[in-house]
Lab assay of single mutants.
Amino acid sequence: GYDPNALYCICRQPHNNRFMICCDRCEEWFHGDCVGISEARGRLLERNGEDYICPNCTI
């Protein structure tokens, strides 16, 4: 089920109804503003069928 207190992202904070994006490599969720991806950019990636790779996986 959905846990509203689950911690995500590099900031280890809950979802808090903020835009989030999922890394296509590790499948962890990240707040867009923490990883520099706007909601519009996230939608563009999705539309173009491009993967989002998080900072942890791009090292």
Rank of each mutant, 00 (worst) to 15 (best):
residue 17 N to C: 06
residue 50 E to A: 10
residue 3 D to N: 14
residue 23 C to F: 00
residue 27 E to S: 09
residue 7 L to R: 10
residue 40 A to G: 07
residue 45 L to N: 12
residue 33 D to S: 08
residue 58 T to Q: 05
residue 41 R to A: 12
residue 51 D to Q: 14
residue 57 C to I: 00
residue 9 C to L: 01
residue 2 Y to W: 15
residue 55 P to K: 15
residue 9 C to Q: 02
residue 33 D to A: 06
residue 56 N to H: 08
residue 10 I to F: 05
residue 36 G to E: 12
residue 20 M to P: 02
residue 20 M to F: 04
residue 15 H to C: 11
residue 39 E to P: 04
residue 24 D to L: 05
residue 40 A to Q: 03
residue 1 G to C: 14
residue 33 D to C: 10
residue 16 N to M: 12
residue 7 L to T: 10
residue 27 E to L: 07
residue 38 S to C: 05
residue 53 I to D: 02
residue 40 A to T: 07
residue 12 R to D: 07
residue 6 A to M: 13
residue 55 P to F: 03
residue 22 C to Q: 12
residue 1 G to V: 15
residue 12 R to V: 03
residue 33 D to V: 05
residue 7 L to A: 14
residue 56 N to G: 12
residue 52 Y to F: 10
residue 59 I to A: 10
residue 20 M to L: 09
residue 31 H to I: 01
residue 32 G to F: 10
residue 32 G to S: 09
residue 56 N to L: 04
residue 53 I to G: 06
residue 52 Y to I: 05
residue 3 D to G: 04
residue 11 C to S: 00
residue 43 R to W: 06
residue 54 C to N: 01
residue 9 C to E: 01
residue 47 R to P: 15
residue 9 C to T: 01
residue 33 D to E: 09
residue 11 C to G: 00
residue 10 I to W: 05
residue 1 G to W: 03
residue 31 H to Q: 01
residue 58 T to C: 15
residue 33 D to K: 09
residue 30 F to D: 01
residue 2 Y to A: 09
residue 21 I to W: 02
residue 16 N to T: 12
residue 20 M to S: 10
residue 52 Y to P: 06
residue 10 I to P: 09
residue 25 R to D: 09
residue 5 N to M: 07
residue 33 D to H: 07
residue 1 G to D: 14
residue 30 F to A: 03
residue 35 V to E: 02
residue 41 R to F: 06
residue 9 C to H: 01
residue 49 G to L: 07
residue 14 P to R: 08
residue 11 C to E: 01
residue 52 Y to S: 04
residue 40 A to L: 11
residue 41 R to D: 15
residue 28 E to S: 07
residue 55 P to Y: 04
residue 21 I to K: 09
residue 4 P to V: 05
residue 36 G to K: 13
residue 30 F to I: 03
residue 35 V to T: 07
residue 11 C to T: 01
residue 34 C to A: 01
residue 57 C to Y: 00
residue 46 E to T: 13
residue 44 L to V: 08
residue 30 F to R: 03
residue 22 C to M: 13
residue 24 D to M: 12
residue 29 W to K: 15
residue 49 G to K: 14
residue 57 C to F: 00
residue 44 L to A: 11
residue 50 E to C: 02
residue 43 R to N: 12
residue 28 E to M: 08
residue 19 F to N: 03
residue 33 D to L: 08
residue 28 E to N: 04
residue 47 R to A: 13
residue 59 I to H: 06
residue 43 R to L: 11
residue 7 L to K: 10
residue 46 E to M: 08
residue 21 I to E: 02
residue 47 R to I: 12
residue 8 Y to N: 15
residue 37 I to Y: 13
residue 51 D to C: 07
residue 26 C to P: 02
residue 16 N to E: 12
residue 1 G to T: 15
residue 20 M to G: 09
residue 36 G to T: 11
residue 40 A to W: 05
residue 15 H to I: 09
residue 21 I to L: 08
residue 26 C to E: 01
residue 57 C to G: 00
residue 19 F to L: 10
residue 35 V to G: 03
residue 26 C to M: 00
residue 45 L to K: 05
residue 6 A to V: 08
residue 35 V to L: 09
residue 5 N to D: 10
residue 9 C to K: 00
residue 42 G to L: 12
residue 46 E to K: 13
residue 56 N to P: 06
residue 14 P to I: 09
residue 22 C to D: 14
residue 4 P to E: 04
residue 46 E to Y: 12
residue 14 P to N: 10
residue 49 G to I: 09
residue 39 E to H: 04
residue 6 A to H: 05
residue 57 C to V: 00
residue 22 C to G: 12
residue 42 G to E: 15
residue 6 A to I: 03
residue 36 G to P: 02
residue 16 N to Y: 03
residue 13 Q to Y: 05
residue 8 Y to A: 10
residue 33 D to Y: 14
residue 45 L to E: 12
residue 31 H to F: 02
residue 19 F to Y: 12
residue 44 L to F: 13
residue 55 P to N: 03
residue 42 G to D: 09
residue 38 S to F: 04
residue 7 L to F: 11
residue 41 R to Y: 08
residue 50 E to H: 10
residue 5 N to L: 03
residue 8 Y to K: 13
residue 21 I to S: 03
residue 29 W to C: 12
residue 11 C to Y: 00
residue 21 I to A: 06
residue 27 E to C: 04
residue 2 Y to L: 15
residue 16 N to P: 04
residue 31 H to E: 00
residue 21 I to P: 00
